[in-house]
Design a binder for these strands. Structure first.
Lengths: 258, 258
DNA sequence: CGCTTCTTTGAAACGTCTCAATAGAAGTGG
DNA sequence: CCACTTCTATTGAGACGTTTCAAAGAAGCG
């Protein structure tokens, strides 16, 4: 977590577009507060105007969701260290979905107006933020495909791949083993399945030697296998633009569809 | 279609953010070509770098889609007059999905580099384009919910509501009757269903007096009914920011969940 | 250590898909 | 303008994947 939250943000943005010293200074001087958020806390509520600040995740995991009239929940994305949670509402007047902490979260709450300001006034920062937003949108598209056209086994395999590779790209995990802070019900809400079927499907993946479960820890035993099962092609994550440092063993496995 | 394509674009953008005269002039002088595109033509292809121009739809309909390894197709969004088709790739190096003409299309191909330029250099234009992009993202989220958590009947009803209201907001239709240029297979690809089941479901909606089909023409017989069946809440379209002129009879029906 | 939350399992019900075949509409070339 | 071909819509019957309901175990937490 080296240094300050805003230096962290500046570093992240400069991976997406080259920032000048002035740009870095502008990012570094954004008004902000660091805060700890308990698991399950709402950061954004559907139907309300966005808060006057945007939360940058420093550690922990969060998710976006929407509800059906009948109360069915669909998780529409997951977020990790480095993600800006309210970017999706930066220029919108009313929140169209809710954002909730999945785990306890360290966040930096950045003044919304100031962020809008730099996004529009500073081209390099603007471009970096555009890339953030466009990659989020790309992930939504992949999720529409995942939930619309893949069966349960593929959906689960796909989301496990996405989480693993994004955690890896965010430098949260080193190896194939990671802690998944989601219940099977949440996993179901993210994949359009019931928790019961998530359970059966994961058991099946484990029985086939693709993954191994030990409590909340998940190990991928067979990367090529799970990637194939999940029809996972990381193109949609645009890692070349988002994590240029990403050149570790895993990336080789994921670099092309096989 | 009054006036030139770029005046049309300038008018649209100024509905999203107030443009100065200079801004309007900058939009109006964007290098562009007007072109007719045949139905089914690819405008963007997954895996390729985006074209050197961005297509603005002047008339007709287009859609984005992604494919499974097994060849299953998922349509992830629909686009009408006024939509900028390549905005989703404006700052990305490789296309993560394909865009295809649904009908014959009139488009204005705007120079991509010039559009990036104004998006970053001119705050008001930048903000207007941000809103475009964020609303697209909001629609993707709603589609994840639609496909993940609603049954066939609700999915179909929902997409019909979305199309009707967006056509209305884009001033393509006046009333409750509109021509849907989609086959039932395409409707299935947009809702994660098979064409067979789309057929049965639409027959059922018609039998229940909610819609009426006559060839490719669809009439909504019972707005409140279909809106309820489709769990349709137009909040996610952010019409207040996108179509402020939108104050016709239909909007009353859709203004709040009932 | 007791209480809540989460996981696991079984059996039956149900929604959607698959396969298959027919009918209708639309487009094409002679 | 008709015959031909090719899409598109329609319908039926059976198969299949996923959900529902219910109940028991296991794990996590104060």
């Amino acid at each position: 977590m080296s240094s300050s939250p805003l230096e962290f943000l500046a570093r992240r943005l400069s991976q997406r577009a080259p920032l000048s010293e002035d740009d870095v200074a502008a990012v570094s001087s954004l008004p902000h507060t660091v805060r700890i958020v308990h698991a399950a806390t709402y950061l954004v509520r559907e139907g309300e105007p966005p808060k006057p600040y945007c939360a940058l995740v420093i550690s922990g995991m969060a998710f976006r969701h929407k509800l059906t009239v009948l109360g069915a929940r669909q998780i529409v994305s997951l977020h990790l260290r480095g993600d800006i949670l309210d970017l999706q509402h930066l220029f919108l007047n009313i929140a169209d979905h809710s954002v909730q902490a999945l785990t306890e979260l360290d966040v930096a709450e950045i003044d919304r107006e100031a962020l809008r300001e730099v996004a529009l006034a500073r081209p390099a920062i603007g471009q970096a933020l555009w890339i953030e937003g466009l990659v989020d949108a790309s992930i939504y598209r992949e999720w529409v495909l995942n939930v619309g056209r893949r069966d349960a086994r593929a959906r689960i395999a796909h989301i496990l791949c996405e989480i693993a590779i994004r955690m890896h790209a965010a430098e949260i995990i080193e190896a194939e083993r990671f802690q998944l802070p989601m219940t099977q019900e949440q996993l179901g809400d993210a994949t359009g399945l019931t928790s019961v079927h998530v359970n059966r499907t994961m058991k099946a993946l484990a029985a086939d030697g693709l993954i191994e479960q030990a409590g909340r820890w998940i190990s991928i035993r067979d990367w090529n296998g799970i990637r194939r099962e999940g029809d996972f092609n990381p193109l949609y994550l645009h890692l070349d633009q988002v994590a240029p440092h990403f050149g570790r063993p895993l990336s080789a496995l994921f670099s092309r569809r096989g």
